[in-house]
């Protein structure tokens, strides 16, 4: 895995990594990729893809409103609040 790919992945994940660590991260990611590539050598043509490790089906919920307004509770620990809005740095120019 090359340096640019590591930087791109870090960027997508919003993780800051310093230049010194890139090589180390690159090699450990490469190990994981090697493992995946090894698995890819197995023929799975007749195997149904698994989308969840448990062989269970989802229970559905009735369409009912059960939640109350708990805005004050959720916003108690947040400094960036005004008039009940969450505030973030301006995201449009």
């Amino acid at each position: 895995m090359d340096k640019d790919t590591v930087i791109k992945i870090a960027d997508l994940a919003k993780i800051e990594i310093n230049d010194k660590k890139i090589e180390e991260i690159s090699s450990s990611l490469q190990k994981i990729l090697n493992l995946v590539n090894e698995m890819n050598t197995i023929n799975t043509d007749d195997v149904e893809p698994m989308s969840h490790p448990l062989n269970l089906k989802q229970e559905l919920r009735k369409d009912e409103v059960l939640e109350k307004n708990e805005r004050d509770l959720f916003q108690r620990n947040n400094k960036y609040i005004e008039d009940g809005y969450y505030k973030v740095p301006k995201i449009i120019d």
């Binding site: 919920r61 369409d63 009912e64 409103v65 059960l66 939640e67 307004n69 708990e70 805005r71 959720f74 916003q75 008039d83 009940g84 809005y85 969450y86």
Partner: peptide, 26 residues
């Protein structure tokens, strides 16, 4: 629907900001 797709918070339009956003929605 009355409630959200993955939570039991109301989907009513026009409520005061963030009063219909529960822990799952957040």
């Amino acid at each position: 629907t009355q409630s959200k797709i993955f939570s039991s918070a109301s989907t009513n339009f026009g409520a005061e900001q963030n009063t219909q956003a529960c822990a799952i929605d957040l």
